[in-house]
Design a binder for these strands. Structure first.
Lengths: 352, 352
DNA sequence: TGGCGACTTGAAAACGTTTACTTCTTCGAG
DNA sequence: CTCGAAGAAGTAAACGTTTTCAAGTCGCCA
């Protein structure tokens, strides 16, 4: 088999075999070909064999575009993620992919960025390109997008966040409760001067819930919550800066909640740079329990979320809905605080 | 606007507006509608306005499936990655996505796993589903797949690896040369007892090139290369085990090349666990200079590869080929050794 | 004034499927 | 022996576009 050169006309632009070609070769009608392939029982065995043989001989493989047009089903579902190069989001995407291949679907992946002003644009594009269903990371707060999917009746699911009242089903976790757990962990250890580094709140229900939980927790105990924000597009650089701002606002800080593991990664590195010992000088927690959280020095106390599982769940739910009309239900997954060595009791006060 | 309930028949299964609806409303033929939308200059301005108005009123958006069928162009290209939840691969995917949205394409993403026996299956699926072009991570060594893309004339590109002789264009780096650089860096520092932790070689041109380079380098200096392999599916767990195996085979090791940053991550953690100081007891290098390599303690000496850029380059190349028929050329990107604190001169020998 | 070209538009034929209908056997029951 | 039902195959009509081709209008020049 000699590989064909760029301009190889020996194979005369060999256009792919269609159902007609197979039909002709097998001496049957195209309808029979289609039936032999899709509903084999509906065609006499001998004829079926004939068709299958012809199909194989011609290397026929059904053209999904034609099929999709006629069936009005593409077996494509689209996923919308804020970012791909991220240890959390890519995990969700993995879960989605897992489920998709299992059901012989294929996935459009689209990166929306954190600015959900263009969420609508991306979603629209995916639908227009033929996605039958949509999986969106985080709560959808864009009315236009909500309109789009309900009007056009596009099965849509969000993943990662769970909020009780939602027009569209959410497969996720309770960010509020989870953050309360983390905060209370620190409080129970005896910390009173606690801060949080959060991502931007605008259009981000996760960060909203988490800062809210943090504030509520501290207020309940009569403590003053301290929050700094990082620009999520440059979490690393800004995590360090945020930590510095916090320290300068309150130098006697003993504990810090980072609203994403990746923020904690840079915070822990910055602590090292500043000569702050974790957890002796500063207890640190992350969120998501991303793969490398346990490899840090010290290993990071974090909150584990079943990211892959949620992605998988979302995808199968949507597929089941598409295939069997099953209703899509929200689901709230349990989370778990993973206690590692980045948290400890506060160092006993030196003086008063 | 009240959100429609699951069984809301008030909107009578409102099927999307088609070109026919727009035509009727504007009082023109469907051909004119199509023209007004695609080649505006070909239709009288007043009429064009009329059509556009009708389209907007009906919320018409062209059905890409019908379009794709007729045009035999889907504006979809597929990417095949070994894994998604990985700081390197996800970077490549990001680059691809960047370029895709820029050109109003959309991407199928498919995870093939490291076992390239099913590479063919996945690629076939993508093509069948309508992908016009394929981007594959790493060299394609599967003859069936090669056959598939050449016979069906599917523009295909590989990304990350560059090898001079290749049937299909490769956008990548020279793994052999890069590893030589890293190895020589260690040699120049004075190390003589150097080992490598590599991924499995089977079907993985990157690891093959790297182990080869390592062996060549050491042999040239009359040194004995020591190599252990990790199962790539469980890099973390196995990175630690591999390190232990190496130490037990040769306890006086002073330097270790890890063939992927993620391997180095677990190796560095394992060193900590074993009480080995990096770089005093053991110099360590990674490969890929993934985002968090610089946040480790100590920060990891690694080899930076332009992963996003390569992904972007691959996608634009393939799109340009599709749109303008431009030939696709291979490209070899420069890499750079990023010197950080995980490497140092070997500790002076204690005795002889 | 006749005719030729340039411009616009519409009718209809694809693109590759699936599927509702029709037609034709065949077979069993009455 | 006949009639109807069941089974199997074919015909043709979709699905929503784009695009070829033909036709019509208009203006301009000879």
């Amino acid at each position: 088999m000699t590989p064909s050169r760029p301009t190889d006309n020996s194979t005369p632009k060999r256009t792919k075999a269609t159902v007609h070609d197979v039909a002709k070769r097998a001496g049957v009608s195209i309808a029979t070909v289609s039936r032999a392939l899709n509903t084999p029982d509906a065609v006499r065995p001998e004829l079926r064999e004939e068709v299958l043989k012809a199909a194989k001989a011609l290397g026929y493989t059904t053209n999904s575009v034609g099929k999709a047009l006629r069936r009005r089903r593409s077996q494509v579902i689209g996923t919308l993620l804020p970012r791909l190069a991220d240890p959390l989001f890519s995990l969700v995407a993995s879960g989605v992919q897992d489920a998709l291949v299992e059901h012989d679907y294929v996935g459009f992946l689209e990166i929306s960025g954190f600015d959900n002003r263009n969420l609508y644009t991306h979603a629209h594009k995916l639908i227009q390109k033929g996605a039958e269903g949509l999986i969106v990371f985080g709560r959808i707060d864009d009315d236009d997008l909500l309109d789009l999917v309900t009007k056009q009746n596009i099965p849509t699911l969000t993943v990662y966040s769970y909020l009780a009242a939602s027009e569209i089903p959410m497969i996720g976790i309770d960010n509020y409760a989870a953050t309360r757990q983390l905060t209370e962990l620190l409080l129970d250890l005896g910390h009173t001067r606690i801060a949080m580094i959060s991502g931007p709140l605008a259009g981000n229900d996760r960060q909203q819930s988490r800062t809210q939980a943090f504030q509520d927790c501290l207020h309940e105990r009569g403590l003053e919550p301290l929050i700094e924000h990082v620009d999520v597009e440059h979490e690393r650089a800004n995590g360090a800066a945020a930590l510095q701002r916090l320290i300068s606002r309150r130098s006697d800080l003993t504990a810090l909640l980072c609203n994403r593991d990746v923020i904690a990664f840079s915070a822990i590195a910055e602590c090292r740079r500043m000569g702050l010992s974790v957890p002796d000088d500063l207890s640190l927690t992350g969120f998501d329990d991303v793969e490398y959280a346990s490899l840090l020095d010290p290993p990071l106390t974090s909150l584990s979320v079943p990211a892959i599982e949620m992605g998988r769940h979302a995808a199968t739910t949507i597929i089941r809905h598409l295939e069997s009309g099953d209703a899509m239900h929200s689901a709230c997954y349990d989370t778990e605080v993973i206690l590692r060595r980045s948290t400890a009791r506060p160092r006993p006060a030196r003086r008063g």
